[in-house]
């Protein structure tokens, strides 16, 4: 059941602009790792490289899923999902003109997830009763918080071993940010997931993170081996996160 992720010497960019400089990270089996940093420091670029949406210029990305090692570089996004690595994308990327239920059904497209469609639905409706109430409603007509729930639920429908969450707090009211983060923490515990979460809301992210990396201008400036270290690191908080 061990699923982990290793990123070594990752370099990537868009056109001629280099964004990431030799990023090294790892997410051990069953951990929740937060990738922290403010806007424009390269968090989403790391996520895009891992999930097959962007081809890195150098470096290795290796995922171990259920004991089998996979080289993620060069895989297409759908192939990465096929391995059991689900992404909750920034901006949620739901299918706005399909219903909640149709969106969830689509989540179960992956070969391994199809037989578990019904179980998956029941699980999602139990975790998010709100989605059960709105199952016939179009995804695009729901509130931001409900859409975030649906995005997480859709990712869970793929029966992932590893969950990658990109900026879950964007566009949500503070109370919903807090709830979303808690839900991710709970789900991780219940499903035994390995979680990598990119987030700029430092205080919320460290509530559930086992470890954290701080990304500044495309470089890992700090690596905290535990949440306490992350929380107490005044230098990082002041200089890079701009909070006291």
């Amino acid at each position: 059941m061990a699923s982990e992720l290793r990123i070594e010497g990752l370099r990537a960019g868009y056109g001629g602009v280099q964004v990431l400089y030799d990023v090294d990270m790892h997410v051990r089996a069953g951990e929740t790792v937060a990738l922290l940093g403010t806007n424009g420091n390269g968090k989403s670029t790391v996520i895009k490289c891992v999930t097959g949406q962007l081809v890195p210029t150098a470096g290795r990305i290796t995922a171990v899923i259920d004991g089998t090692e996979h080289d993620l570089v060069g895989l297409r996004a759908e192939e990465v999902v096929g391995l059991g690595i689900a992404l909750v994308p920034e901006g949620r990327r739901l299918f706005p003109k399909l219903t909640v239920e149709e969106n969830l059904h689509l989540g179960a497209f992956r070969e391994a997830a199809r037989p578990k469609l019904q179980q998956g639905l029941e699980f999602c409706f139990e975790v998010f009763p709100r989605l059960a109430e709105r199952r016939k409603q179009l995804a695009g007509s729901m509130s931001g918080g409900e859409q975030q729930m649906l995005a997480i639920a859709r990712a869970l429908m793929t029966q992932p071993k590893m969950l990658i969450v990109d900026e879950p707090s964007v566009g949500l009211a503070p109370i919903l940010v807090s709830k979303t983060i808690e839900t991710i923490g709970e789900l991780k515990k219940r499903l035994g997931l390995t979680v990598l979460m990119a987030e700029q809301n430092f205080q919320q992210a460290v509530r559930i993170a086992d470890r954290g990396y701080v990304l500044v201008h495309g470089k890992i400036e700090m690596h905290a081996e535990n949440a306490e270290e992350l929380r107490n690191n005044q230098m990082v908080r002041k200089l890079y996160l701009g909070i006291d």
């Binding site: 297409r76 759908e78 299918f95 399909l98 149709e102 689509l106 179960a108 992956r110 429908m157």
Partner: peptide, 21 residues
């Protein structure tokens, strides 16, 4: 399953990849 991705693909091509299709 494939049929449903046809309904989805018109709305968001990249999101279709994210469900593994």
């Amino acid at each position: 399953f494939t049929g449903r991705t046809i309904l989805a693909v018109a709305q968001d091509v990249e999101a279709v990849r994210l469900i593994g299709a």
